[in-house]
């Protein structure tokens, strides 16, 4: 589903290469985790795939179901089924959560040539999804993420994911700022979305999120490259021995 080949990416503002030949294949129905120390390029990878400005692609490719992601606008990537759950979800004063969700959903449907969803069906859909994430009506009414706690913001990201039903979900450090209960809610939300047509790329610094969202494949990212790939046991090894040990071994 997601196919990244020898991707090399620099910052637009300074001549500094962050990703230095990253290759990755994520198949439908699987959960891949990318772990790595700070500064290894984890957030750059997620932002780049989602289409954020500020990066220059020096080489390589990234495709979603055969379509070249790198030439698409962010909204086109979203309509094609890519979703990034932000590490730091943005607050948008003045835009109600429901309005935002409905605008996004209908924009995607329109882009795919599907009919827009009517207000009643939409309300029903959101209420149902929100309930599972313990997001109450009050939170839905408030402006997007404004005054939300860290946990509420992350739950709101998962709600968006549940409503938009993307096929390729990237979770960028979704565990940061979460307490144990919130981690469980968020993980349950993600696990509920797992199915054979959908894939996940879970980017995290710590292993603990992976206790809740069990990955099929774990990659270690260091200095802009994937240096090791393995099963869930690789995450446990990081937890026990830290990154230094693994990095020392592959160096």
């Amino acid at each position: 589903m997601l196919k990244v080949r020898d991707l090399r990416v620099s910052l637009a503002e300074e001549p500094k290469q962050i990703l230095k030949g990253l290759t990755l294949d994520v198949e439908p129905g699987t959960v891949h985790a990318i772990m790595g120390p700070n500064g290894s390029g984890k957030s750059t990878l997620s932002y780049l795939l989602a289409g954020r400005e500020g990066y220059v692609v020096d080489g390589g490719s990234a495709e979603l179901d055969g379509a070249n992601l790198l030439t698409m606008e962010p909204e086109e990537r979203a309509a094609a089924g890519l979703f990034l759950a932000f590490q730091y979800p943005v607050e948008i004063p003045g835009v109600g959560n429901m309005t935002f969700l409905r605008t996004a959903l209908n924009a995607q449907r329109k882009a795919r040539g599907e009919p827009e969803i009517d207000a009643g069906s939409f309300l029903k859909l959101v209420r149902e999804k929100a309930k599972a994430l313990k997001i109450d009506a009050e939170m839905l009414k408030r402006p997007v993420n404004v005054g939300f706690s860290g946990g509420e913001k992350k739950r709101n990201e998962i709600l968006q994911m549940a409503v938009l039903e993307p096929k390729m979900c990237i979770l960028d450090e979704t565990d940061s700022g979460l307490d144990v209960d919130a981690m469980k809610l968020v993980s349950d939300g993600v696990n509920a979305l797992r199915d054979e047509g959908r894939a996940f790329l879970v980017i995290t610094h710590y292993q603990r999120l992976l206790d809740h969202i069990r990955p099929d494949v774990v990659h270690i990212l260091a200095d802009g490259r994937i240096v090791q790939t393995g099963g869930p046991e690789l995450a446990l090894e990081v937890e026990t021995n830290g990154y230094a040990d693994i990095l020392g071994r592959v160096a």
């Binding site: 989602a50 289409g51 954020r52 606008e73 962010p74 909204e75 990537r77 979203a78 309509a79 979703f83 990034l84 932000f86 979800p89 943005v90 948008i92 004063p93 003045g94 835009v95 935002f100 605008t103 996004a104 959903l105 924009a107 995607q108 882009a111 402006p143 968006q160 938009l164």
Partner: peptide
């Protein structure tokens, strides 16, 4: 953020103006 959720740029800017 708005665009990453599928809202086209022009529509996203309009939303921001209204907001």
């Amino acid at each position: 953020y708005l665009r990453s959720r599928g809202v086209p740029e022009a529509e996203a800017k309009d939303m921001m103006v209204l907001a």
